[in-house]
Design a protein around this nucleic acid. Structure first.
Lengths: 191, 191
DNA sequence: ATTATTTTTTGATATACATCAAATCACTTT
DNA sequence: AAAGTGATTTGATGTATATCAAAAAATAAT
């Protein structure tokens, strides 16, 4: 059974019924095909998305034109470029679908209106940021700082056992901050 | 002129006078000597601190017993182990003063009470987390992912021009995720 | 099925940085 | 000032991973 937006929202921090209804009205339900860009550099990130089903990658393009993945969101996760979204300033990264996706989205201005209008929604948003965003980035930071390439790959595999079927080796290598040659050697057990 | 707690709070998101007064009453004003530990691993991080004056380091101790710095807060920054604080679970890292410090602190439970009590304080806390916490970690993540040792050092110097007088080479090297020998060679221009 | 295109693997070499050991420098303390 | 202690620098060597080039395998297009 696919998860619903309402279930996602209520699992973060339960809202009173009439607040929930107001919130749900401000979301749009969207479907996009594989390779579609949710965000391109230079544009402010206008939305906060919730993934119902699918997969996306976040990436930067460096001076040499090489794409470097910084994050994946697979199924039921929140998607946004937080820095660009919270300051409504031009994004530096891209967000691209790597599978056909089903998403729910709320606009920045609608979010601000709801935060001002409902105290309970502000408490909900605090939980969202604390639980989903901060934990994710801090985990990733600790990984980069303490683990070597092989350990980072094994952790990713534990977290997403089916990732090799959904995301190409090159994309995973880029995320792990190693070359695809090195990842290939790790898979072959040569490292 | 030293900054006051009230100025720090109001610069994040202005609060109505009577909310501000309630908030200020829940803070304690503290002074601790150099080397004092604000947090040790295994204990939940009970406080959110605001630095008035001084410097602290955050560090992990790895399996080989080596201390690895993950962060510095110098003057007027917020201090907390966010993961431990927001979930009130045992911390994995230490926070130690590297200068005599003047701090203001609020307890987790007091913060929760104020968040429930004042809608405007919840909006204030959202700004705090968005501006101070998320931006900081994302910057650091990007640094680790895209910059080499020398570039990270130069960026740190730009951000804190006086850091070499306040923090030892070993502590800085640990933060940059390189050995102190490598940092010494970078300083000498040999890299 | 055959060809074209993309993805993954393999090999040889190069580089950034770590590690280990020792020397030098800079403070304290007597 | 001398001795002691911790911080920093230097040198020699080792290792993980990058880079470049090419082969093999998998996937898509004709």
């Amino acid at each position: 059974m696919k998860v619903t937006l309402e279930e996602i929202i209520q699992s973060i921090y339960p809202l009173p019924q009439q607040v929930l209804e107001d919130v749900l009205e401000h979301f749009q339900h969207l479907e996009y095909p594989k390779n579609y860009f949710l965000l391109k550099p230079g544009k402010p990130c206008k939305y906060l998305w919730f993934m119902i089903e699918g997969a996306v990658r976040y990436f930067y393009t460096n001076e040499q034109g090489k794409e470097i993945n910084t994050w994946f969101s697979l199924d039921t996760q929140i998607i946004t470029d937080t820095t660009s979204f919270v300051h409504q300033e031009p994004a530096q990264e891209s967000i691209q679908l790597i599978e056909n996706c089903e998403l729910c989205a709320i606009e920045y201005s609608a979010l601000q209106t709801l935060l001002q209008k409902h105290h309970s929604f502000a408490l909900w948003y605090i939980k969202l940021v604390e639980m989903h965003y901060i934990s994710q980035i801090e985990d990733r930071l600790a990984d980069l700082q303490f683990l070597d390439a092989k350990q980072r790959y094994q952790k990713l595999l534990n977290h997403y056992p089916d990732i090799t079927n959904r995301i190409s080796l090159g994309n995973i290598a880029s995320y792990l901050n190693i070359t695809q040659e090195t990842l290939s050697r790790i898979r072959a057990g040569k490292i």
